[in-house]
Amino acid sequence: MLSRVANSIYWLSRYMERADNVARFIDVNLQMMLDLPSQSQEQWQPLVNISGDDGAFSANYSVASRDNVIKFLAFARENANSIVSCLRAARENARTIRESISPEMWEQVNSCYLMVNAAVPSSELLRSPSSFFSEVKKASQLFHGITDATLLHGEEWHFYRMGRLLERADKTSRLLDVKYFMLLPSVADVGTPLDDIQWAAVLRSASALEMYRKRHGHIAPERIIDFLVLDHEFPRSIHYCLTAANDSLHAISGTPAGIFRNAAEQRLGQLRAELAYTDTDEIVARGLHEFLDAFQTKLNLVDQGIFDTFFALRPVGSAAPDRVGQ
């Protein structure tokens, strides 16, 4: 398929998934705030930190108040990763490849964008934004369902799936990081019911609480890390996402599993193997935040490898930047 079209499907998918996840971030924070002891200060700065867009935030707002952070993450046009901006970018990508996707996919992206674009961050909406975020999550999930049911499960679908899963892996890692940045009122609160409540909120925002309970029962930080990072079967766990993305990558290139022929395959393969052969003890020993931070950097390199291998416009006469490896 055309490189440009592949690129747009990949980003269409990433942006739809990103909008969903930004809604989840805000939601997890809202839930955590509700359970804080009444005298404690609300904490919204952590959300800005994990979004990776601190620069854009401080350029536009002086304090990380609840309203400012929600406005910035959900509605701000000057934030390229706000929900509104993601959905606009998703729609622009879809618009350039309408001929390659199903009409149902386009209609869903379009109506999702129209819905969000019409939403004004009024004081009322900011006071109780939960239903708005659940609309966004539903719209994104509906898009994924429609795509699975209507798009040819060929190369285009694999680019779509790879985009969605790599985005999700990145966002699950950031969701876990929210808890790292979230200060407990005092050191003595570690391991208390309050701590548990916050961990449960992390799970809930990843739609993972009930599945976690089935797998591990009680709330325990190590097991939550295990579930969200290393689980083989939970569809939002990082390991699960990378494994499935890797399958799609190999389906696209035709490279047999276990070897690599380009930078994308090499980097994704390495990263996946790293996760496959680690455990929570190692992660905790290293420090969860440090682990997640390093993971995000490596994931960016995977994305760069995909761009170089499939999307970059190569000059005439040069072959694809293939490397045969074993």
Partner: peptide
């Protein structure tokens, strides 16, 4: 884009 889609060809 509509015509490409309806004919099933690349745009």
């Amino acid at each position: 884009s509509f015509l490409a889609q309806q004919m099933g060809v690349e745009l």
